[in-house]
Deep mutational scan, measured.
Amino acid sequence: MTFKLIINGKTLKGETTTEAVDAATAEKVFKQYFNDNGIDGEWTYDDATKTFTITE
């Protein structure tokens, strides 16, 4: 399955996707992406659209 990440950061904005077997696996991938890029904020997940959103 394809999961999308929408980034609404102070310095970084955009979208990316990842292929994962489930939302929990995608969450781990995206959290690592947050850490690697110094993004910290509030994030949500919409199961209907398989979209994670992080807002700094």
Rank of each mutant, 00 (worst) to 15 (best):
Lys31Phe: 06
Lys4Gly: 03
Gly9Ala: 06
Tyr33Phe: 11
Glu42Val: 13
Val21Thr: 10
Thr2Pro: 07
Ile7Ala: 03
Thr16Pro: 02
Gly38Tyr: 12
Thr49Ile: 05
Thr51Phe: 01
Glu56Met: 09
Glu56Ile: 14
Gln32Phe: 06
Glu56Leu: 13
Ala20Asp: 02
Ala26Glu: 01
Asp47Trp: 05
Thr44Trp: 08
Val29Ser: 07
Tyr45Asp: 00
Asn37Arg: 13
Asp40Ser: 14
Thr11Leu: 12
Glu42Ile: 13
Thr18Met: 12
Tyr45Leu: 01
Gly41Lys: 04
Gln32Val: 08
Thr44Cys: 08
Thr49Gly: 03
Phe30Pro: 00
Phe3Gln: 01
Asn8Leu: 13
Phe3Met: 01
Lys4Ile: 14
Thr55Ile: 06
Asn35Leu: 15
Gly9Cys: 15
Lys28Pro: 02
Ala24Asp: 09
Thr18Asp: 01
Thr44Glu: 09
Thr55Ala: 05
Asn8Lys: 13
Asp22Trp: 02
Phe52Lys: 00
Leu12Cys: 15
Gly41Phe: 14
Asp47His: 09
Val21Met: 12
Asp22Leu: 02
Thr53Lys: 04
Ala20Lys: 02
Glu27Ile: 11
Asp40Met: 14
Ala20Gly: 03
Thr55Ser: 06
Thr49Phe: 04
Asp46Thr: 03
Ala48Asp: 12
Glu19Arg: 10
Glu27Lys: 07
Lys31Val: 07
Asp40Trp: 14
Thr55Glu: 06
Glu19Asp: 06
Glu15His: 06
Gly9Pro: 02
Glu27Cys: 09
Lys10Asn: 13
Glu42Tyr: 12
Gly14Phe: 15
Phe30Ile: 04
Asp36Asn: 11
Tyr45His: 00
Asn35Ala: 15
Gly38His: 14
Lys31Trp: 06
Gly38Glu: 08
Lys13Cys: 14
Phe3Lys: 00
Thr2Ser: 08
Asn37Tyr: 15
Tyr33Cys: 09
Lys50Leu: 13
Asp40Glu: 13
Ala23His: 07
Ile6Met: 04
Tyr45Cys: 01
Thr2Glu: 10
Glu27Asn: 04
Asn35Pro: 04
Thr11Tyr: 15
Glu19Pro: 03
Ala20Asn: 03
Leu5Asn: 01
Ile7His: 04
Phe3Thr: 01
Tyr33Gln: 07
Glu19Tyr: 13
Asn35Tyr: 13
Gln32Met: 09
Leu12Thr: 10
Phe3Cys: 02
Phe52His: 01
